[in-house]
Computed example of a mutant assay.
Amino acid sequence: MPAWKELRPMAIDELIERDWILLPGTLCTEDVFTPMLEAIGVPLHQRHAIRLDRPTIEDYAEVCTRSEGAVVCGFSLGAIVAAHLADRLKAARIILFGVNPLADDPAKAEGRRALAWDVIMKGGGAALDARLPPLNGARPDVARAKVLGMAERAAADCDAQTALALSRPGALGVLAKTECPVLVLTGTDDTMAPPELGRQAADAAPRGQFFPLTRLGHYALLESPAACAVALHNMEARLERAA
Results as ranks from 00 to 15, higher is better:
M1G: 08
M1W: 09
P2L: 07
K5G: 01
R8Q: 13
R8Y: 00
A11R: 15
T26Q: 10
T34M: 12
E38P: 00
L44K: 11
H45W: 15
R47T: 03
H48T: 02
R54G: 03
Y60A: 13
E62P: 00
E68T: 13
V72G: 02
V81P: 00
V81S: 02
H84D: 12
L85C: 04
K90R: 09
A92S: 14
L96A: 03
L96C: 06
L96S: 05
P101V: 05
A103G: 09
A103T: 04
D104H: 06
D105C: 10
R112Y: 03
R113P: 01
L115A: 02
A116N: 04
D118L: 11
D118V: 05
M121E: 15
K122V: 10
P134A: 13
L135Q: 11
L135W: 13
G137Y: 12
G137Q: 11
A138Q: 14
A138R: 13
R139L: 14
L148I: 15
G149R: 12
E152L: 14
A154V: 11
A155E: 08
Q161L: 05
T162Q: 05
P169K: 03
P169I: 08
G170L: 09
G170S: 13
L172W: 09
V174S: 01
A176P: 01
A176K: 08
K177L: 14
V184R: 01
V184I: 10
T186Y: 13
G187M: 10
T188V: 14
L197V: 08
L197M: 15
L197E: 10
G198L: 03
R199G: 00
R199W: 15
A205R: 08
R207V: 02
R207K: 07
T214H: 14
T214E: 15
R215H: 12
A220N: 05
L221R: 05
L221M: 11
L222R: 08
E223A: 11
S224L: 12
S224K: 07
A229R: 07
A231I: 10
H233V: 12
N234F: 14
M235S: 04
R238D: 10
E240R: 10
A243N: 10
